[in-house]
Nucleic acid binder design. Structure first.
Length: 538
RNA sequence: GGCGACGUGGCCGAGAGGCUCAGGCAGAGGUCUGCAAAACCUCGUACGGCGGUUCGAUUCCGCCCGUCGCCUCCA
């Protein structure tokens, strides 16, 4: 089955044929590091992260590059506002950006070039463009002359005439054509600058991506991606300068652009004050997987209208998938299979697994239809729960193997989507085991102290002080202790105490399920509840 | 003004000329359970309007209405 992708350049879905068989070079426009990244950025980075993961899953050797724009007006302005240097701002923001990417489960980028590290390459390109007559120098600035490049407009599907129709910006009179764009900007006083043959200055925005993508991937590389807003002028200009420079085409084989994200039906903009940062989402205790799921429930080219309610819905949906894996684990631990049943590679195993995989691929091969791919997972989840019930009633080796296989394929396909399911023994030591520790760090202080209060109210033993010190280090232990108290209460049918404990834990965002497992009572930290509590306390 | 996208059941959202059905969230009833939770079962006669093509269109074409994006920095 061949992979088809929508190419902005042609406006059609096309079969993806790499420049070099089995290898894909991919360049995604990265952030200008002047602030924390917002969820619109995140949508873009997550979308292309999944595309990269899927390409690798398909067996392609992918080189994934994402630049960091660390010199720009916005950075300079920010530095001025904060009375610091542009370097300082970009360093801080770059670090924050990398942290956010990791939180979102975006795999590390293979090459992460910075604009300021590639000034010589850019100067080289600009010089050649001047030599070839595509660019001209005016008073320390260098402009690209769009009328010299006959394909100008081919990406955004507009002619120069059409573009002029919508002019609403004052035109620099030194430009030969209003659409000419800066390759090099003359330095203003007190701005970071680099020496050049045309005087001190700094690069224009578009040239960095051309210089860096050509350096690391070379002319005619496979995929160049970014937000839809970059189609014009950024990517259009990249094509112009790169193809003019190289005297060849195409610069890029496939152009991919993700749809925009709005907030409550409004464009996310600083002027509207509705920018939501990735950090804010994480600080508000939402599960990063839920945000990822929210993105993936939409096709990457479609717009998304973001609201916190939708994020909560995605949280529920994610937990639905995660519950299955936890339930499988528990069942595998609890139910012992009679040793007489033999292990068979039953037809069912291969059928369910291979059908799921095939449907998933079919969806993803169609321009990365993650929404349809997710439906495959949800369908499997339903089927698996039914099998699970049967297994509990009649634990055969065959059923066990099937459940293990289903668990594995969940991890396999979940990984392609970058979804990280919590705890499971199915993959043994390969996956991070309890996510619990991580989650605990996110618990608001007050909740933790509430938990302690509850604990101390329940336990009046003489060793309280000592216990306190010890337990503070291990939230899980306390919780298990509380759950143990509850368990004993339930055993003597003291429903009042049992229910009281459960309700109070619920009030802290801890959901308790009366399912016996070898590890004790089952409990789950519920993001949703925490959010509710958090909202109420504000 | 120019270019373009979109309009699917309470909400979100895939999708295809007719085939039984996307999927998720929410809601109702039921099964299980001390009660919950989780899970499962059942429940919605959806495709903006008007024409056209067709044996048949929500899916193709045209027009209209509506929403949004780009044309300026923006993922």
């Amino acid at each position: 089955m061949s992979l088809r992708v929508y190419n902005t350049l042609t406006g059609k879905k096309e079969e993806l044929v790499p420049r070099e068989e089995g290898k894909i070079g991919m360049y995604v426009c990265g952030p200008t590091v002047y602030n924390y990244i917002h969820i619109g950025n995140a949508r873009c980075y997550v979308s292309f992260d999944v595309i990269r993961r899927y390409l690798r899953y398909k067996g392609y050797k992918v080189i994934y590059i994402q630049n960091i724009t660390d010199i720009d007006d916005k950075i300079i302005n920010r530095a001025r506002e904060e009375n610091t240097t542009a370097e300082e701002i970009s360093r801080k923001c770059t670090r924050a950006y990398l942290e956010d990417m990791e939180s979102l489960g975006v795999e590390p980028i293979d090459v992460q070039p910075k604009a300021t590290g590639h000034i010589p390459e850019m100067l080289g390109m600009i010089e050649k463009l001047i030599q070839k007559g595509y660019a001209y120098v005016v008073d320390g600035d260098v402009f690209f002359e769009v009328t010299k490049f006959e394909d100008y407009g081919k990406l955004s599907h507009r002619t120069l005439e059409e573009m002029r129709a919508g002019e609403r910006v004052e035109i620099d009179p030194r430009k030969r054509h209003p659409m000419d764009f800066a390759l090099w900007k003359k330095a203003k006083p007190c701005e970071p600058s680099w020496p050049s043959p045309w005087g001190d200055g700094r690069p224009g925005w578009h040239i960095e991506c051309s210089a860096m993508s050509l350096k690391y991937l070379g002319m005619g590389f496979d995929i160049h991606a970014g937000g839809q807003d970059l189609i014009f002028p950024h990517h259009e200009n990249e094509i112009a300068q790169s193809e003019a420079y190289a005297g060849a085409k195409p610069f890029v084989r496939y152009w991919l652009h993700n749809g925009f994200l709005s907030i409550e039906k409004e464009k996310m903009a600083k002027s509207l004050g509705n920018v939501i940062l990735v950090r804010e989402i994480l600080e508000r205790k939402y599960n990063p997987n839920a945000l990822r799921l929210l993105f993936l429930e939409h096709h990457y080219r479609s717009p998304i209208d973001f609201t916190l309610d939708r994020l909560s819905e995605s949280t529920e949906a994610f937990e639905r998938l995660e519950n299955l894996l936890g339930d499988i684990d528990d069942a595998l631990e609890v139910c012992s299979v009679s040793s007489t049943s033999q292990i068979e590679t039953g037809e069912d195993v291969s059928r369910i697994v291979s059908e799921t995989r095939a449907k998933f691929k079919e969806a993803m091969d169609d321009d990365f239809n993650t929404a349809a791919a997710l439906a495959v997972l949800f369908e499997l989840a339903k089927e698996a729960h039914i099998l699970l019930q049967n297994f509990k009633a009649n634990p055969t080796a065959e059923a066990r193997d099937l459940l293990i296989e289903i668990g594995k394929i969940f991890f396999e396909l979940g990984k392609v989507l970058g979804l990280e399911f919590g705890l499971s023994i199915i993959q043994e030591s390969k996956i991070k085991l309890p996510r619990t520790q991580e989650l605990l760090k996110l618990l608001p202080e007050k909740m933790v102290s509430d938990l302690f209060d509850l604990y101390f109210e329940l336990s009046q033993g003489p060793d309280t002080k000592e216990t306190r010190a010890r337990l503070k280090e291990d939230f899980t232990k306390i919780l298990n202790t509380i759950l143990d108290v509850r368990k004993r209460a339930r055993e003597r049918k003291d429903w009042k105490t049992a229910d009281n404990i459960r309700e109070r834990l619920n009030g802290m965002g801890i959901e308790v399920r009366d399912v016996d497992t070898p590890r004790g009572y089952k409990w789950k930290f519920s993001f949703q509840r925490v959010i509710d509590i958090y909202e109420r306390s504000r």
